Amino acid sequence: MSKAQLNVAIAIVLQQGKVLVGFREAIQHQGNKYEFPGGKVEAGESPSEACRREVFEEVGVDIQAWHDFDFIQHEYEDVIVNLHVFHAILAVELNADIQRPWRWYSRAELGELSFPKANQRLIQRLVWPNAIKISSDLNALTECSHEQLFYWRNDLDEAVQLEALADISVHELNQVIVNTQLYAKLNSIQQANVAAIHLKQQQLMNMHAEDLILGQRYVASCHDELSLQHAQRIGCDAVLLSPVHTTATHPEAKSLGWPRFAELSTAMHIPVFALGGLTPVDLSQAQEHGAYGVAGQRFF
């Protein structure tokens, strides 16, 4: 006998680096666990309409603009749940309208909470490591700790890139970030397992929300306020903001400095990685200026 299928709309609500989370009572399905806002898609409504309605009913705020975030099918013992996941940013001035038990948690805190199994993929996508190593040498991936991601930035011939990645295991790919042009050439298994898709600033500015691939994590390189806001507006997961300091690799680029970096990063609701003349030791200073983490090449 086939199991019943349940369509559920889930909302990932973001604000200043935090995520809105509630707690299920023991009498509810998957009780005594934390949850994102959401609920059953009713007859006659689309998943996005259900998402907006559920957030208004449960949380007390009406968010009209939603981005597609993911689609997850999870099979429990008694039912198959189709999760239609959306994300949006909540304006700070609406915080007073948030009802209990909903409250803000940092992304790092999400990993400490007990969510239903169907939500684990969402947690993995939302919680980023605090460091990204950038290198043109794919062999440098072996030097990365499990607390780092690895952005393979290079100008190699496409065939050479694909041949090199063919020797990388699925487990190792979970740490690797590749540019969108290279991602398009990967096989389906590789595409499903890379850590994130990278967008150069020019690529970013030519993209719209509907161009992002459902379920994939995106990180964009940004150098100014316009590109930062565009990345957030179309639904990117994170950004690399540079250069904080003048670097040997790009001496002609005007550095932001920490005051300007802080001004830009604190206005963002998605993770901002500081890049440019930094080392892992600079993480605390970067976070004091609004960064989620740090990224770099020579000193990582």
Rank of each mutant, 00 (worst) to 15 (best):
E252R: 03
E288K: 11
E252A: 04
P280W: 04
E143I: 03
N82L: 13
S188Q: 07
E163I: 09
A231D: 10
L141N: 02
R125F: 03
L83G: 04
V194M: 03
G277K: 06
L264V: 04
N95P: 07
R52V: 01
N119S: 15
H67M: 14
E45C: 11
S284E: 11
N187S: 06
V59N: 14
G235F: 02
F56M: 10
V8Q: 13
C222P: 08
K133S: 12
S188I: 00
P280A: 01
I27K: 07
E45L: 14
G22M: 01
M1W: 00
A195C: 02
C222Q: 07
K133C: 09
H250C: 04
L256A: 06
H74T: 09
I123Q: 08
V294E: 03
D282L: 02
L186I: 06
A195Y: 04
C144I: 03
A291R: 04
Q175V: 01
S136F: 10
F36M: 00
I189H: 09
A295R: 09
Q297L: 09
A50V: 01
A220T: 08
M207Q: 12
L138F: 12
F299H: 11
I63S: 06
Y183L: 09
Y292L: 00
W102A: 01
A164M: 15
E93M: 02
S48Y: 05
Q297H: 05
N7F: 12
S2R: 14
Q297E: 03
Q181E: 13
D211S: 13
I10A: 10
K254Q: 04
L6P: 04
E54N: 15
R298K: 15
I98L: 13
Q99D: 03
T266M: 13
R24S: 11
A108Q: 15
V239T: 08
I197D: 13
K185A: 12
A159V: 04
N206M: 14
V219N: 10
P47Y: 08
V160G: 06
Q73N: 06
G293R: 03
A88N: 14
N7L: 06
D62Q: 03
Q73K: 12
A238Q: 12
A65S: 12
H289N: 11
D155T: 14
G44L: 11
V85K: 14
L83F: 12
V176I: 11
Q216H: 14
P251T: 00
E93N: 13
P251Y: 00
